[in-house]
């Protein structure tokens, strides 16, 4: 069976079948269903089966684009979006700084670098449920270690997750802890691919470490930095488990301070039973993420250099 035996869809199909079935059932079909649901007023009360008259159901309950209009004119949506953006504004610069520092430390040819690598990665292994519970307890206002540590210096710590002002920053702090090791490893991959000859040449020319960082490392790492920025922003728009677990009491944090988009989608669908509304919401979020990704991609040329 030479190349002739490895030709044609009939030969390929048995190999493709499991993933094609998976793709059809768990990726492509859901997109279609979600799009159809987004134009219905389905509340989850009436029973719906996909195999029995789903399209008729959609037609009967269709409200056109009303869900989208309702969401966009709802003050709450803009509030949730603004909370996502607030999270990003606090999170993005810090995660870049922290993960970059971690990556540089691991990449240094020094004793201890291997140990630091293991330690920085530990939070990444933790599930968000466990991580959130740990941080909830760390940030507990009276009995938590953070406020007790601050008290040593005479600082009275805030109420953290129970304060409207500090709830989101608390989530940001926990998220940086959880994610810095992951992005550090991605950046480390970029650092390792930089040819060490550049540094040797610079050293011979008498360049300082700071100059080398600015003139060699940053430009050569810019494509990886771009990838990290994009990835962390996409993930930040989908902020969910940490908010659900850390600010469980009350409705999305004190006075809704940690109300974010995926949390809304989940609650509309499975708490309030507004499935159609939630489906529309998820598409609006999808479009927002796409738009931000597109804007970033447009800006890519300005600061990413691929050639040296």
């Amino acid at each position: 069976m030479s190349i002739q035996g490895r030709r044609g869809i009939r030969v390929a199909l048995p190999f493709l079948l499991p993933s094609l079935l998976g793709a059809a059932l768990f990726a492509i079909l859901p997109i279609g269903i979600s799009l159809l649901l987004s134009i219905t007023s389905w509340t989850g009360m009436s029973k719906v089966t996909l195999t029995d008259g789903f399209l008729r159901f959609v037609a009967e309950h269709s409200v056109g684009l009303d869900n989208f209009a309702a969401i966009l004119s709802d003050h709450e949506f803009w509030r949730a979006l603004s909370h996502n953006l607030y999270f990003i504004v606090l999170y993005l610069p810090s995660i870049l700084l922290f993960s970059m520092t971690c990556a540089l430390i691991i990449n240094a040819q020094r004793r201890g670098a291997g140990l630091y690598r293991v330690v920085y990665y530990l939070p990444v292994l933790t599930s968000w449920v466990a991580g959130s519970l740990i941080w909830k307890w760390l940030l507990s206002p009276v009995y938590g270690p953070i406020n007790n540590f601050l008290a040593i210096f005479g600082v009275e710590g805030p109420l953290w997750l129970q304060s409207e002002l500090w709830a989101m920053p608390s989530i940001v702090i926990a998220s940086i802890w959880k994610d810095m090791g992951f992005y550090a490893m991605v950046l480390l991959g970029g650092l390792k691919s930089i040819n060490t000859e550049y540094y040797e040449a610079a050293r011979i020319d008498g360049a300082s470490p700071l100059q080398m960082f600015r003139r060699i490392t940053l430009p050569l790492l810019s494509s990886v930095l771009f990838y990290v920025t994009m990835l962390s922003m996409i993930n930040a728009f989908q902020l969910f488990p940490q908010v659900m677990v850390m600010t469980k009491d009350g409705n999305a944090g004190p006075n809704g301070a940690t109300m974010v988009m995926v949390e809304r989608i989940y609650k509309y669908a499975f708490r309030y039973g507004k499935m159609g509304y939630a489906a529309s919401y998820s598409w609006i979020l999808f479009v927002i993420i796409m738009a931000f990704t597109y804007i970033q991609k447009r800006g890519e040329k300005r600061w990413v250099s691929y050639d040296v």
Partner: peptide, 17 residues
Amino acid sequence: MLPSHVIFIPLYLIMND
């Protein structure tokens, strides 16, 4: 590129069926 927040509602329906 397809995020899980778009998938989870229809996935629930499919699994239900």
